[in-house]
Design a protein around this nucleic acid. Structure first.
Lengths: 219, 219, 219, 219
DNA sequence: GATGAATGAGGATTCATTCAT
DNA sequence: TATGAATGAATCCTCATTCAT
């Protein structure tokens, strides 16, 4: 009975494939970063991975699928690295510290995984988010909502969602600024991103959670 | 009145040329809005304009040039509509009113000129702004800096620039959210954009300019 | 006013295009004959026509369109060559002569336009005629029906249609046999095709139209 | 026979192999029917069979071989089902009954084995029958010749062959018409196919075999 | 035998751009 | 100027077939 697959027999086969997939995703990440998602071509990705176009299509039906898988893996990694919530929040944590930590992590994650930025990129057409980015966006949004709801337990969900959208938008915009600068300037931008978020959220948090007594840099 | 015949022949030509250019730019705007800048094809623009591709290239050396010219005209129109500064600021204007007015104008302008959004779209590639958007971006930035400097006369230019970048980024991110929602939800997002900017700028403005006594919606 | 198209000015432009179209259709005919319709590639057609693939697509949106246009022109030519009906029928013409003439013409036309056969080819999938051949087939069918109805004025239309379908099918099958043979053998097949059609139709025509007194070859 | 290890090991293998082959041929039949022979891909066949492409190529050197083997088995089955001749002919059988029976069987066989139609499909290219269909065609032809020769014992072989070719062609063309219609219309077409063949053959059979006294439907 | 990964040439189609008219 | 024909490289994707495991 050669057809009886043991527990690892089929794995063996998949091993090579799994490696190829990782290789292809790495290549895709590289190409997406270099040329941007829209301009990236499947042939370029295959070339970068050192395989033929046909091989790529054995694992992914199209570019979109690559982006989606890449996004999934990124979110997975993010979850593994930072735990279930974007930032695990001790209810006693002052808002500014929570935001600062969240921003730092977000930026750190991006620095390690530059594709993230390329994939996060909004709609080319106002009002239409490409399917491939949709998943990434909504996952991120959910995490921000999660984080926020511990600070805004009394706000109606619609408000929390709206606030989360704004925060995420600011995160993304800020990330762009951070990434386009270096050294001290970059640090200054990071601080600005923290500031704007903190100041935005402070009144919403209301009396429930004070701000740490440590002074925030006034820019 | 360029069509004055007499001296006129060259005038006439220019006139026709101007009309063609306007026609092409309008077509380009339409196509950019529909398909996004990256996906827009010069052939599609020519078709939309009802002319041949050759004609398009008689006026613009390439797609980029179209985007640049379109951006220039948009900035020009913005200037004509709203005066030299993004918002003419009476030094006595309270910050919240100034921001509110600026945001309203910005959104109004975008509603009237939906291409604006398509052209403003940031870099596909982190750290690299496409040349075609560069001009638009820096012009806008300059206007925001202008507006801010009247509020922050004592801040070092580098800080003003940084603050302007953040504001512009938030503007853009907020615009996306506004455009992707409708009705009451849209209004709520508009308010959020105002809130975040006001709260961000308030401490920077310091004691110099108080906030109007009218209460801001607390979201 | 350069935009005032005279009567022939726009023709001039189209002249080159018209020539190209003819050239492309000729090339397509050649390729269809050589490799068959299904296996024919647009690139091969362009190559055969000595133009680039892009040029082909300036005139035809896809392979199907080429086949359709080719079919249209063939039918047009057939009409021009043989008059409105497949065979203009004098009511007094004996059946055998009418059939013989029709078959001769059909075969002659095919000999002159070998693509005809390639385009006439039935469905790859039982029950589904490709759109590209549909038009050709139904036009031919209509002509056969026309021809038949003068012989079968009293038959219900459904019967005429059915008979026409059978005749056309036999025509096509016979054509294949004729084309795959040469010399005397080909002549013999031609005779067979005539025979089978005549014998099939004879009883249907009933007493209305006798058979010419000239003896039919008994094969 | 270099592979003869024990006495039964090869048996076993063959058995499995036979099963695989049957499985693959069934899958191929299904795919040929769905997409047509030309458009069928070996990968699709393997997938349909639930095996890997490599496995397919362990049993068949290429797509053509699959078609040939499929054709062979079909002919084999036909022979088993209907006996050595397409229709076992009692010399006393009247022509119309013989034809009617043969057509009925032919159609019945096709209804049970729809691939038959897909494989029988003539040359894509006039004058060239693909090798893969060649075998099927010539086998069928041989059977028709066989059948005919009992009716036309005195005709020269060349004539018999020619007549057989015509009959087979008409069979095929008729089959297409039958398959593309349903219900009463299909029955009508079946009758037409019988009619045309009977009328075609009647004069050839000459006085040797009369026509059954039962009246044939006159269309 | 069986698997599934790998190939790479080839398919249809698009597009920015140029050129003859 | 304006036209539209022409280009050809590049796009995504498929497929028959081979090969390492």
């Amino acid at each position: 009975m050669p057809e009886t697959p043991g527990k690892e027999q089929p794995r063996r086969r998949q091993a090579r494939g799994e490696r190829r997939i990782a290789q292809l995703l790495a290549a895709a990440a590289s190409v997406f970063c270099t040329t941007g998602y829209t301009a990236a071509s499947t042939n370029a990705i295959a070339r970068e991975a050192g395989v033929s176009p046909g091989t790529l299509y054995q694992f992914f039906p199209n570019k979109e699928a690559i982006a989606i898988e890449l996004g999934d893996r990124l979110m997975h990694e993010m979850r593994e690295t930072y735990g279930e919530a974007l930032a695990p929040v001790d209810p006693a944590t002052p808002l500014d510290e929570a935001v600062s930590a969240a921003v730092d992590r977000f930026i750190a994650f991006n620095t390690e995984h530059p594709v993230f930025f390329a994939l996060m990129h909004g709609p080319d057409i106002p009002g239409r988010i490409a399917e491939e980015h949709e998943a990434l966006h909504s996952t991120l949004l959910a995490r921000v909502e999660e984080l926020l709801s511990s600070f805004l337990p009394d706000s109606p969900p619609a408000d929390v969602t709206r606030t989360a959208q704004v925060c995420l938008g600011v995160y993304k915009a800020g990330l762009e600024l951070v990434l386009t600068h270096e050294g001290a300037e970059r640090e200054a931008y990071i601080q600005e991103v923290k500031n704007i978020l903190i100041r935005y959220l402070e009144p919403l948090v209301g009396g429930r959670l004070g701000v740490s007594s440590r002074r925030r840099t006034a820019t």
